[in-house]
Every structure is written in C-alpha cells, then in structure tokens.
C-alpha cells in the first residue's frame, strides 16, 4: 500500500515535471519561431533610405501569424513603431492622435495599410501587451507586428517610438521620420501630421515633401543580445 502510494506520488511528480519541461520546450520553440520568422527577411543588414525600393521581408504579428511585406503589394503602407512603455508613444496614442491619423488616412486612400511594429527588446516578445495596448486605445491597424529581433526596425533605421514610414504603392519608401511637427514631443498635436501630408501628396501625384524629418520620442531599445 505504502509502495503504491509512493509510486503514485512519484509518477504524479514526474508527470508534472514532464509537463513543465514540455511547456518550457514549447515556449522556447515559440520564441525561436518568432526569431526565425523575423530573421527570414531578405534584407539582412540592408538599410532602406527614402527614395529606395523596400525589399520583401517577413513579419510575425501579435497572434503569431507570419506574413510577407509583399502581401500588401500595390497598396500604400504606413509603418509606425510603437512601444506601450514609452510615454511619448503612449501619449499620442492615448490622446487619440493615432486613431485620428488612421481615420484621416482612410479618407484620402481607403486602401492604405497600417502596420504597427514593436521592435522593443524587452516587450516585443510579449505580443499580448502590444495587442492590448492597441486595442485599449482603439487603434485598428491591418497588422500589429512583433519584431523582437529588431531586424525590421533596423532595416528602416527606426530610432524612436513613435517613428513613421510611408511606402508608396510601388514599394518605394517616400517618407521617414517624425509622426508630426509637434513642438513639445507630441504633448500638443502638431499642425502637420507627416503621414497625412505624404498621403495627400501621393494622391495628388506630387513628390512627398518633406520626405525626411527627425523623429522624436523614446529610443526603440532594441534587444541587447541583438545589438550591433
């Protein structure tokens, strides 16, 4: 009797331990999957400049779904770097400026695609935090991308949150830099939202101007192990 109880207890422990180990291995696998997807970009070390064609790259969204940049082929794409922990990024988002930008953009170009990217090292591997942050602030984007390895962020040379990039329907980077011309880090909205400015000019067939501004905000804070 004693032996059977002991055996049952030990078996239970072994099962629990096994389950924990399995879960741990599964989680590691998931992390690797994220990294692998991000590393699957065709753009290793390549930095895209304004006026250049954006090469295709892989993205993994907050739900673990992998997609290609080429999936948005033929559409204008706006990419915004986000970090729920950055007070500047959170400030403009909570103030409704991101939601307004998306709404205004859809009026100019109903097919415009918005991709929110989190390249921040210590939060990017927690997709739920980014998803919750966007949902709580009613930011409805076409994709919310987790870029824990920083490959996509570094390809665009994204330095701050929020930094924004506009890629035209032909795949050319036509604007990169600040969210708007706010004189106080987005605390009060600027007169010009540079994404709306770019989309308006694209629609009119004009050259985007300005096409490069200095972005403001917190540093992206890429994962330390991936630096360099």
């Amino acid at each position: 009797m004693k032996h059977s109880r002991l055996t049952a207890l030990l078996t239970g422990c072994a099962l629990l331990f096994g389950a924990a180990t399995f879960a741990m291995a599964d989680d590691t696998k998931k992390d690797k999957k994220h990294d692998k997807a991000a590393a699957a970009t065709d753009t290793k070390e390549k930095r895209v400049k304004v006026g250049e064609q954006v090469p295709n790259f892989s993205m993994t969204d907050v739900n673990g779904k992998t997609m290609q940049f080429s999936d948005f082929s033929g559409k204008t794409v706006v990419m915004e770097w986000v970090n729920p922990g950055c007070p500047v990024c959170a400030g403009i988002t909570k103030a409704g400026l991101v939601t307004k930008m998306i709404a205004d953009a859809k009026v100019i170009d109903p097919n415009v695609v918005f991709v929110m990217v989190n390249s921040t090292g210590d939060t990017a591997n927690d997709p739920k935090a980014t998803a919750t942050y966007l949902a709580d602030n009613k930011v409805v984007a076409n994709a919310a991308v987790i870029d824990g390895s920083g490959v996509i962020g570094k390809m665009f040379d994204a330095k701050t949150t929020p930094a924004v990039y506009v890629i035209d329907s032909k795949g050319t980077l036509v604007y990169g830099g600040a969210f708007d011309d706010s004189s106080d880090r987005g605390s009060t909205p600027g007169k010009t939202n540079y994404v709306i400015n770019a989309l308006t000019q694209l629609k009119a067939g004009e050259k985007v101007s300005p096409d490069k501004t200095k972005s403001y905000g917190c540093g992206v804070k890429y994962a330390k192990s991936q630096n360099g």
């Binding site: 924990a20 180990t21 879960a23 741990m24 989680d27 992390d31 729920p84 922990g85 950055c86 007070p87 500047v88 959170a90 400030g91 909570k94 103030a95 090292g121 210590d122 939060t123 990017a124 591997n125 927690d126 935090a129 824990g148 605390s187």
Partner: peptide, 27 residues
C-alpha cells in the same frame, strides 16, 4: 521554468502603470 523565459519575465518586471501615469501627467 519561469526565470528561464527572460523576455517575458523582464517585461513583467517593468511595471507599465507608472509610465502610463506619467504619460497622462505629461498632458
């Protein structure tokens, strides 16, 4: 097991509430 997941554990270790409060105070 918990500590072996640095990315998630680190994220949890940084409370976001004070930052968001600061963001609110900022306005």
């Amino acid at each position: 097991f918990l500590n072996d997941k640095p990315a998630v554990a680190t994220m949890q270790a940084h409370p976001t509430t004070p930052m968001l409060k600061a963001a609110g105070a900022f306005n």
